[in-house]
C-alpha cells in the first residue's frame, strides 16, 4: 500500500490515525439523540410561551424536564462542534486560520455547554 502514498507522506511516516470512523459514528449517535430531544425541546418551548417567569422557572426546574434539557444542550453543542469542524475543514484552507477557527469553535461550544449546564442546575437545584 505504501506505493499509493506520496513521497512526502512516506518521509513524514504518518499513516492512518486509526480514528477516522470515530467522528462519523459520534455525529450519527448525537443525531439520533437529537431527533428525539429536538422534538421534545420544541414541544417544551411551545408550552413555555404562555407562562410568566415563575411558571417558566418551575417548568424547567421539574426534574424530568431539567434532565432532558441537560441532555439536549450537551448533545446540541457536541453535535454542533462536530458539524462545524467538517465545514471548516472543507472551506478554510489556510493552515493558520483553519487552526484558529477550529480552536475558537471548540472553545465556544464547550463554554456554551458549560454555561447552559450551570444555568439549568441553578434553576433545578436553587430555591
Amino acid at each position: 500500500m505504501s506505493s499509493l502514498r506520496t513521497p512526502l507522506k512516506n518521509a513524514l511516516g504518518l499513516g492512518s490515525a486509526r480514528q477516522g470512523s470515530h467522528h462519523f459514528i459520534i455525529q450519527r449517535v448525537t443525531a439520533v439523540a437529537l431527533v428525539l430531544l429536538g422534538v421534545w425541546f420544541v414541544w417544551t418551548v411551545l408550552s413555555l410561551l404562555h407562562l410568566d417567569y415563575a411558571g417558566a422557572h418551575a417548568l424547567v426546574a421539574q426534574p424530568c424536564n431539567a434532565v432532558l434539557l441537560l441532555a439536549f444542550v450537551v448533545t446540541v453543542f457536541w453535535h454542533a462542534q462536530l458539524g462545524l469542524q467538517v465545514v471548516i475543514e472543507d472551506y478554510v484552507h489556510a493552515r493558520g486560520s483553519q487552526l484558529a477557527l477550529q480552536l475558537t469553535v471548540k472553545f465556544l461550544c464547550f463554554l456554551g455547554a458549560a454555561a447552559s449546564v450551570l444555568a439549568i442546575l441553578k434553576i433545578a437545584l436553587g430555591r
Binding site: H57, A80, G83, L84, A115, S116
Partner: peptide
C-alpha cells in the same frame, strides 16, 4: 446547521436569564 449553531447563543442567553 451553521444557522442553528449560531442560534444556540439565544438558547444559552435564555437559560442564563431564567437562572
Amino acid at each position: 446547521g451553521i444557522a442553528l449553531a449560531a442560534g444556540t447563543i439565544l438558547l444559552v442567553v435564555a437559560l442564563l436569564a431564567l437562572a
